[in-house]
Write a protein that binds this DNA or RNA. Structure first.
Lengths: 250, 250
DNA sequence: CGGTTGATTGAGGCTGCTCAAAAGGTGTGG
DNA sequence: CCACACCTTTTGAGCAGCCTCAATCAACCG
């Protein structure tokens, strides 16, 4: 699976355009000035290796990071070793906010694959917001969308059984992947999560995730193998998950 | 329990000052102009009965509501009857955002007690933000805090067992109640949730909540009875819940 | 006084966890 | 090139946390 994970970040789709711009343009109209400002924000980008920590729980966030290629996640760690993934970051997603600059972060952000990130200082990011109301508005809407996803996660963890939970997570990721243009022609896409990662995101053990995956595969709903997700019957998957993409369409 | 629930909204502490101002002043400095603007926002307030719906899932949000007295909650409903509470609103909390005005809400907001709310039109709210950068900043920080609480809920539901979950929810509410000045001298306070409500917030059945409450009571940690929560051993309760109030202190 | 809602208790069962072990793949050092 | 460590996936057996179903009781209300 490392082979596909390593290849993931190099998929051509991720490089064609500015993923941040693509994502924000969906949320609200951006004029040429806004677009230019966003492009300038991404002047300094770097590649980081899989597993690298982008923001550390307990440390102040001194940079806003934009993920441009690869996959990352937010997670919270307990002292006793328990861990909960609280969000998946796909190309075009942001983390960090100028208003929280002085406060220690309450979660980690970690790259799951080799990833390309733009690192923008808090000050510069704030200046861009101040000078470009359109950009500020777009970021605000992005934050609202993030909140909606978080609410959906609460519902997922609180009300759904393991197979429904997994189905819902797959629906969410598939929907967002589609928006990123990272879905292949046959509807499959690379999402380099281990079964352990899925468990950490869904409040399940990897053993149980494995069994649920086998069940979903046996029912010809999805096939998750070697970091590639193939959805065989999107209609039944949505029904199983009670998935309503409205919350993702702000 | 209805007697205490009905009395809740009238507790004198809730009426002394502007709860919205108190809450936002904790998050950032507000000058006199900002304070005056906030006061003007609350010119039109009304009392609504317990159980009233403030915002309806699926309907656009046309007003920003500020809760000034009483308790409310956000919740999402499934078609099959399942329900998940995704947040508790205490005096000084807000719901609604101008940026989501045209979109249907993805959750309900409902008063759990008789409640006093200020109803501000989207346009007026937006105008206040535009004219008072300090207020806009404060609301932005309030939104970030709301996100932090939501992340804590994800962790709570994903990683903790029933007794830890309940303990953590009690810690969160107690901490926020303290900030509202609604905690009595002995550390107890009124929080008009039924055991069913607690279950709906924690992804548990009311039957199990009942058994867990008995356990917490037997261990002399907390006593929840008739809508009044008494914390007998905050230290052990925090330890049980793995509670770290840092996320509530933005 | 009947109806409704919430709290409580009991019995039984299922979902998902724990513990354990083995197989396959990958990277590393000798 | 092989031995070895490590990680992920897979499978099995047993268990326990939490649920379901059901019934009772208390409080409140029209």
């Amino acid at each position: 699976m490392n082979s596909s994970a390593a290849a993931f970040a190099e998929t051509p789709q991720g490089e064609i355009e500015n993923p941040l711009l693509r994502q924000l343009a969906v949320l609200c109209r951006l004029n040429e000035t806004d677009r230019a400002a966003l492009d300038r924000l991404l002047e300094h980008t770097e590649w980081i290796p899989a597993g690298a920590t982008i923001d550390r729980q307990g440390r102040p966030i001194r940079f806003v990071h934009a993920l441009l290629a690869g996959v990352a996640c937010r997670h919270k760690d307990f002292r006793d070793g328990r861990r909960q993934i609280i969000g998946i970051l796909l190309p075009g997603d942001l983390c960090g906010d100028p208003a929280t600059a002085s406060r220690p972060a309450d979660y980690h952000v970690r790259a799951l694959t080799r990833a390309r990130v733009a690192k923008v200082s808090i000050e510069r990011f704030q200046a861009t917001l101040d000078q470009n109301p359109g950009v500020a508005n777009a970021f605000h809407r992005a934050a609202l969308l993030e909140g909606a996803v978080l609410r959906a996660w609460v519902v997922n963890l609180g009300q759904r059984q393991a197979h429904e939970r997994l189905a819902h997570l797959f629906c969410e990721i598939a929907h967002r992947m589609l928006g990123c243009g990272l879905t292949l022609a046959d509807g499959s896409f690379q999402i380099p999560l281990t079964q352990r990662d899925l468990g950490t995101a869904l409040g399940l053990t990897s053993v149980h995730v494995n069994r649920v995956l086998q069940r979903l595969r046996a029912e010809a709903l999805v096939d998750f193998y070697d970091g590639v997700l193939r959805i065989h019957d999107a209609h039944r998957l949505w029904a199983l998950a009670n998935f309503d993409p409205a919350y993702l369409c702000h």
